[in-house]
Each structure stands twice: as C-alpha cells, then as structure tokens.
Design a protein around this nucleic acid. Structure first.
Length: 846
RNA sequence: GCGGGCGUGGCGGAAUUGGCAGACGCGCUGGAUUUAGGUUCCAGUGCCGCAAGGCGUGUGGGUUCAAGUCCCUCCGCCCGCACCA
C-alpha cells in the first residue's frame, strides 16, 4: 500500500475537532420548540491525569449525546471539575504546592486531554467547584437550609490523629493508625454541621419506586442504606436502681423470650456515666475508641464486651434478669445505642454469647422442626418459623408475635412500636482547608450567626501554611477574626469547610446556567433542562453521591430553587477498567510498557531481560502499576480507535479488560473502514444481492437504534461490523452500495465521530456527518419471507430447514418429518407428540 | 460482619428472556499477495473422536417436550459501608 492511502489519524482528528469547535456544534441553548435531552457524565476530580475510567465514562456519555442529537433532541452535554478535596492538600503537604495552583494546573492538563477525545461537549458551560463563582452559591444554599431548619450542629465522632492533631478520613486510617504519623487513631467527638437528610428518609425511599430508569441494584442499595425498619423501643428496668431504665431498640421483638443479655454502645450515655466511677469501664471504652469510625472495621472486629455488673428485669418473665454489657459492636448512631441480645437468632449476638458463656435459647423454630429437639450451635437461625419456649407467644408466626409483644409492652407503658431508619443525617463539616467555607460566624454573645448574604462569598485565604500539622485554615493568623454581624463585637469565623459531596450535589443545576453571577442558576433555565435525562458514572457512587444529590434537589425545591424532586431520571453505572498486573523477579509491581514478549512467549523486562510474571487481571491502579495512559493510547491509535475498543469489548455495565490486542484490533478496523470508503466502486449493476443488502441495511438501522437505546453498545458495534462486512463483500447495484455506506457512516458516527466525518467527506459531501439525521428503518424492508427452523428429536437438534415465514403448524410438522436426518433419529418409532413454535423450532418427541 | 453484583470456547463477549449455545471481535492454524514501514486478503477454528457420534454455559441436584435462561445447594471473584472521590 502506498503512503497516501493511509489514514492520517492525528491530522484528521484534530482537524475535525477544530471544525466542530468553530461551528459551535455542541453549544446548547434553550429551545422550547425542540425536545430537550440532558446527558450528564459524572464530573472528574482533577487528579492531574486522565485515566481509562474517565475515557470509558465520557465515551459512553458521548455516544448518548451524539445519538440523541442525531435523533433531533436539543442536547445538553456539559463538563466540569469536582475540584475540592484531599489530594490537593496532600500535594501541598508533600511537595509544597499550593492546593489552588496544583488543582488549576491539573485542570488545564486534563482539559486538553479530554479535548483530544473529540467529545460533543458544550465547553462554554464548564464549571470549577473550587472557585468562588461556584461555591458562593452553595454558601447561599446553606444559609437557606439553615433558615429552613435543614442544617444544624451536633456532636459526632471523628478519627483523631493525636500526633498530627488533625481529623483523619477513613482512608487515612491504616490498620488503626494515622497514615502519616503512624500514631494509633482515636475516636473523638466534635461539634459539626449536619444536613437533615433524615427528614426526607421516607420521601427518598418512595421516590425510588418512580426511578425506573435506574438500575435495580442501585435502587436496592439505596433502599438498604435508608434501611427503614419497624421495631420496638423497649425500656428495661435496671435492678436495684429505682426508676432507672435502659431503652433499647429491636427489630425482633418476637425473640424477647430468648433474650440473654443487654448491650450498650461504648459511647452510650450510661456507659460514659459508668466510666466515671469504674476504671475497667473507662479502659474498655478507650479500647473501643481505638477502632476508629468505619462501620466495616467495627463489624469485622472481634466481638468484645465488658460486664457492667448491672442487671435489668425481663418485662415478661418474673424474676428473670439480664446482664448488661458494653459491647463494641453496638452502634451509638443507630436506634437508641442499646440492644437486647437474642443469641439463637442473631449471629453477632451468638458469637458474643458463646464468648461470654451466656445462655442460648431458641424461641423461633423452622416450620417443621421439633421444639424439643431444635438447638442452635454455632449458627444463629434467622429464617421463618413459629414461636416456642415463649409463654403466650407459643405457636404464633414471627409477625404475629412481633405485634403481640409490641401491644403488651405498650400496654405496660414500657415502650412502643417505632419506625426507624438506618440513614443518618449528613455530616458536612470537614476540618480541612481545601473545601468551601461554611458561611457562619461564632459570636461569644450571639452564638452562631449566619454570614449576611451581602458578605458572600466567604472565600478561602490564599496565604496558608502547610508546614505544621492540623487544619491550616483554623490556625490562620487573621482570617477567622471578624466582627459579629449582629452585635459588632469580636467574633470568629467557622473554620470547617464542606464535604466535597456538597459541590457534586447541585452541579447538575449549575450547568444549566453556568455563568449566572447573581444566583446559583436561573429557575427557568434549570426547569428547562433538569432533570438530567441520562446520568452516567461509576457504581461506586451508587449510594452516597446519588443519595446526597437526590436529597439536595429536594432541599433546593423546598427553598424554591427548582421544580423537580429527582435530579436524575435515568442512571447508568459503568464497570471498572481492569488490566493485567505484572511482577518482576523480586515480586515488585512493574508497568506493562516496561515489558516485552519474547519469541517463545515468555515475558521479560525490556531494560535487562529479567523474567516477569503476569499476576492477575484487576482494577487499574497506580499502586499495582497496571495502568495504561489514555494520552499515549490516543496519540498512538487515535481517539476513535480508543473509543471503539472501549465500547465494543465489554457490555458497559461490566468490567472492561484493557488489552493491547484489543486496541490493536480496533485500530485495524479504523483503517479497514477508511479503505472501504476509499475503494468503493459505485458503478455496480443491479444483482440478486441487492434485496438482501437492502434488508441488511435496514435491519442494522433497526437493531442498532435499539441497542443504543438500551446501552448495548458492544452489540451495536457488532452490528456495525456485520454491516461493514456485508458492504465489503457486496457486488450489486452501486446506488445501494452508496446508500449502505452513507447509512453506515451515520450509524458509526456516535462511536467514531472523527472517522465518520472523514468518510462522509470521502463520499463527496460538503456537509458534516455530525449534522446528519439518524436514519430510520423501513419495517417493510426488514422482513424476509423465509425462516430457518431447527428440528429436534427428543430435544436434540437433528436438522434445520428453511421454510416460508408464518407457516401453518401442520405443514411445518410435515416438513420436519420429511427430513432424512429426522427419520433416522426417530429410528422408525411413531411420534408421541410434536411441539411447533412458529418460525422457531419443531421438537418431535418419540 | 452487613449490603450489592458477577461467573458461557484459549480470550472479550452474543443468545429475540424457556426454543438451533458460541453472533461480532481478539488470538491461533493453513494459504495468497506484498515483502521492511504497527501490512492486507481468503479459508478454518467450543472440546473429545478417523468417523458415526458424544460432551459442553463455575459445582451438585431439580422442574420441563425443551434450561446459559426457572427453583434449590455449594464454590470462586469483585464492589460499597457514611471524612477518598
């Protein structure tokens, strides 16, 4: 092949990117005359480098945006930066770079990387959350929430590093120690800001039912996270302490007769009270606090308890008492911070009871079990059944027993049935510099005072010192010193900043009016674009980000900012990008591009030839050194090839394994398409291939449209390849070939937009492919009049036969029995039964 | 620990939702063309078997004329768990 016949990817891709840019193809404006479509990909944290996960995410959203645009929708497809967060502070600590400088530089690098992907993004709406023109509006929202009773302060637990004197994120706690100082982490209480997401618990739960554009699994996860449960609040009388009670919460009141102990959370007020007089209790609580705040850590830790010596009376069994423990697995944040333990029917309680030699009495037995013989050894029974060993509850079902216990306890005035949520209020305070300042002032005289709106934004000070441990904003010499807006006396600014989920909870609205200086956004504009029609991002955000954004939208609605309740009508969660990880002789991780494959197939390090072993396919991460740099891929193969591979290899919701072979195959296909258009000969005469070709074209339009609607992008690409294979082989009417190629270009355009433009031009057009309408399938052309049916004998395939579509059952049976292979398989026996599924299959049972 | 998910050829994955398992691609094998330019084109390719045929969707069982798909059992891997984003 000669040089001019090669596709110059680099030149062509940047040329078309420039052309789209100059024509402002993707700039969006409100237009009441057209149906709108808001496509949104989760915005990236500007870590400094685009990674494959981003490329996958934005390839997916780009296909959606381009496809919808071709279908005639008024599409909004914006992009921005989730620019506050810990990594910027870490860079400051490690390299002495100012977080703002580091962040803005990263953004500029990543923006140019993103641009090389050729995305159909309206860059004029770019938002950067760490800039005051963005965060000043969320300060206003916060003040509104404060007025609306949606924000408040309370004590809550944090991970405290006693050496660095700072609060640690869960990820900064490694094996119970601070990642930097190595000092054992302590749990500490701190007064912090919270948003009342629990006010909306029921509403957020109900709203899930309407979200049928969301994956079932995400809705389930949110449902479980909200964790609505019916149960009983029950007050136990403490023995020998007149009038004192311990209030517990349980979702299993039916198992009350099987109770063998009561346990308090280490931070329960009664635990703390006991600690004052009892060194043992004090030490035990201190030990519990060493565990940190992560729920996973707490629940994985070995069950430990401390016998307080207190006892409580069983409400139904006279003279029966239960020992009171303090236990490390009881959470202060859930219920009342105290439980009763029924070991036979709860695994944690059972583990605990076995450890401390407490009785294990089954009170619920499986449907057919013998009450006398049924015992629980090391596995708690949490299944269905009926009650036994439970006095007046014997024989009742679990649900009837629950109701009866609640009724009696209420009658005794010792408690009441309650609905409880696992969901806790959203703690938004962070003791960090690189976040949006909480706009309040603490006045010794007036208390907490909101910063007056005219004084917004409260901007971060630039001159901060990262050389000392702790929160630099809190020890800034002047920043926090202000006059109280109410009384004018000396007061101090709040030094907490917002959780970065705050910024990502409303950016979908900011995009609708990104440059509004007065308000976060204009309501009419937000109402035109919102809610987002298709949101795309990683499953790792299934619960928190998505729940916070749903809550925030409701809170904004309550304050009159938006009309919708749900921010995201449809959600798609993509899988991770994985890659083989490699180890060298010493067991150290080694980058894929440091490796070569030798002729015998063995892997070796390029530099010195030492052997390398393939470890396993896993999520791309810097620590495993199994990352592939998208920038290098795009510059070597082009954006289209990268997009094609990413979209074609795996279904988007599943993990995608990045392989050299895969991107190579995609690259070859790009070249092949280019030659297909270049070498096309439109002079062909009509032939018998024409009809099947026409059908292929229309079937492809029909199937591909459906595949794109359903996010089956890998299948859509397979259909594209089938069509291009057919076009390559086609030797018929040149007019049909031209129609086929032009249709093909329109269909491939969302996947490989640059090449589509190039081919469109090659086919002689002066217009742009991006402006072409999505083709429509003609149903009449899709149907063929014959169909291949499978013929089975006793469920085994013995023959296939081509029959007219819609053939009568009787005739199909006859055609099947006429087959030689069928007769052979029947071995002369008479058919007992013949099942005919029209146009599909015939099964002869003998 | 709790919650959610995934498992089909050598590999990524299809399978109209109970109806021909393996579409499409990667890889591999053989051939052709060009041979320096990440070539291209044609044919074959689930496994066992010379064949007839048999066996095949993580494991074991069940329902059915028919199971990758429905039911039960077990195994393996992955994700989230409230201060990473």
């Amino acid at each position: 092949m000669t040089a001019p016949e090669r596709y110059n990817v680099k030149e062509a891709e940047s040329r078309w990117q420039k052309a789209w840019d100059e024509k402002r193809c993707f700039a969006a404006t409100e237009d009441a005359a057209r149906p709108k479509f808001y496509a949104l990909a989760m915005f990236p944290y500007p870590s400094g480098k685009l990674h494959m996960g981003h490329v996958r995410n934005y390839s997916l959203s780009d296909v959606v945006a381009r496809f919808k645009r071709a279908q005639g929708f008024n599409v909004l497809n914006p992009m921005g930066w989730d620019a506050f967060g810990l990594p910027a502070e870490n860079a400051a600590l490690e390299r002495g770079v100012h977080p703002q400088k580091w962040t803005l530089e990263n953004i500029s690098v990543m923006k140019s990387q993103l641009k090389s992907m050729g995305l159909a993004i309206d860059w004029s709406r770019e938002v950067t959350t760490c800039l005051p023109d963005y965060y000043k509006h969320e300060q206003k929202f916060f003040l509104d929430f404060l007025k609306a009773g949606l924000a408040y302060r309370k004590e809550s637990m944090v991970n405290w590093d006693p050496v660095d004197n700072c609060v640690l994120a869960n990820e900064q706690v490694v094996d119970g120690k601070g990642w930097r100082s190595g000092a054992p982490v302590e749990r500490r209480t701190l007064k912090q800001w919270f948003l009342k997401i629990t006010d909306f618990a029921d509403d957020l739960l109900d709203g899930l039912k309407q979200l049928d554009g969301w994956p079932e699994k995400v809705r389930l996860m949110q449902e479980n996270w909200i964790g609505k449960s019916q149960g009983l609040r029950l007050r136990f009388d403490i023995v020998n302490a007149e009038g004192r009670e311990i209030e517990i919460f349980t979702t299993r009141p039916d198992t009350l007769f099987g109770a063998s102990f009561v346990a308090l959370a280490p931070d329960h007020p009664l635990s703390l009270e006991l600690a004052e007089k009892n060194e043992g209790v004090k030490d035990f609580i201190a030990a519990c606090r060493k565990l940190g705040t992560s729920e996973a850590t707490l629940e994985k830790a070995e069950k430990n308890g401390f016998d307080t010596g207190l006892e409580v009376r069983h409400p139904f069994v006279k003279n029966k008492t239960l020992q009171v423990f303090i236990a490390n697995f009881v959470l202060m944040d859930y219920g009342t911070g105290a439980i009763f333990g029924c070991p036979a029917h709860d695994q944690r309680d059972l583990d605990f009871a076995r450890k401390y030699g407490l009785p294990v009495q089954p009170v619920v037995i499986p449907p057919d079990a013998d009450p006398c013989a049924f015992t629980v050894e090391n596995e708690a029974y949490a299944g269905p059944g009926h009650l036994c060993h439970s006095d007046f509850l014997n024989g009742l079902s679990i649900s009837a027993a629950k109701a009866e216990v609640v009724r009696r306890i209420a009658q005794m005035n010792k408690g009441e049935g309650t609905t409880l949520y696992r969901l806790r209020d959203w703690g938004v305070s962070r003791q960090r510099y690189w976040g949006c300042p909480v706009p309040v002032i603490h006045c010794p005289a007036c208390g907490v005072v909101a910063v007056p709106e005219k004084d917004l934004p409260v901007t971060l000070p630039d001159d901060v010192d990262f050389s000392k441990p702790g929160n630099p904003i809190a020890r800034h010499p002047t920043w926090k010193n202000v006059k109280c807006p109410t009384c004018g006396k000396d007061a101090e600014r709040e030094t907490d900043t917002f959780d970065t989920f705050f910024e990502s909870s409303w950016y979908q609205f900011r995009y609708t009016d990104a440059h509004n200086k007065e308000r976060g956004f204009d309501k009419a504009k937000a109402d035109y674009w919102a809610p987002v029609d298709q949101y795309i991002g990683g499953v790792e955000h299934a619960v928190m980000h998505l729940l916070y954004a749903r809550f925030f939208t409701r809170a904004l609605k309550k304050c009159g900012y938006v009309s919708c309740e749900e921010p995201f009508t449809a959600l798609f969660t993509q899988g991770m990008v994985t890659h083989m990880s490699y180890k060298d002789e010493d067991g150290k991780w080694i980058y894929p591009d440091e490796i070569e494959k030798r002729p015998d197939g063995a892997l070796a390090r390029k530099s010195d030839g030492t052997p390398v072993t393939a470890a396993r396919v896993e999520k791309m991460s810097k620590s495993k050194k199994n990352t592939v740099d998208p920038v290098e891929i795009i510059s070597a193969y082009g954006a289209d090839a990268a997009r094609l591979f990413i979209l074609s290899d795996s279904p988007p919701e599943r993990d995608l394994e990045w392989t050299e072979a895969g991107i190579d195959g995609a690259w070859k296909y790009v070249g092949r398409l280019w030659r297909l258009a270049l070498n096309a000969d439109f002079g062909g005469a009509p032939s018998k291939e024409d009809e099947p070709m026409k059908r292929k074209i229309h079937v492809t339009i029909r199937d591909m449209t459906q595949d794109l609607e359903k996010f089956h992008f890998n299948k859509a690409v397979a259909k594209l390849r089938e069509l291009s294979n057919a076009l390559e082989a086609f030797k018929g009417d040149g007019k049909i070939l031209r129609d086929g190629l032009e249709t093909f270009v329109k269909l491939m355009s969302p996947v490989m937009p640059h090449l589509a433009e190039e081919l469109w031009a090659q086919l002689g057009h002066k217009t742009m492919a991006v402006d072409e309408k999505w083709p429509e399938a003609d149903p009449a052309l899709c149907a063929s009049d014959s169909v291949t049916m499978a013929i089975q004998v006793n469920g085994r395939l013995r023959a296939t036969v081509t029959l007219p579509r819609g053939m009568e059952k009787q005739a199909a049976e006859e055609a099947a029995l006429a087959e030689e292979a069928v007769q052979k398989a029947m071995e002369g026996k008479a058919p007992k039964k013949i099942i005919v599924v029209p146009d599909r299959i015939i099964n002869v049972v003998v």
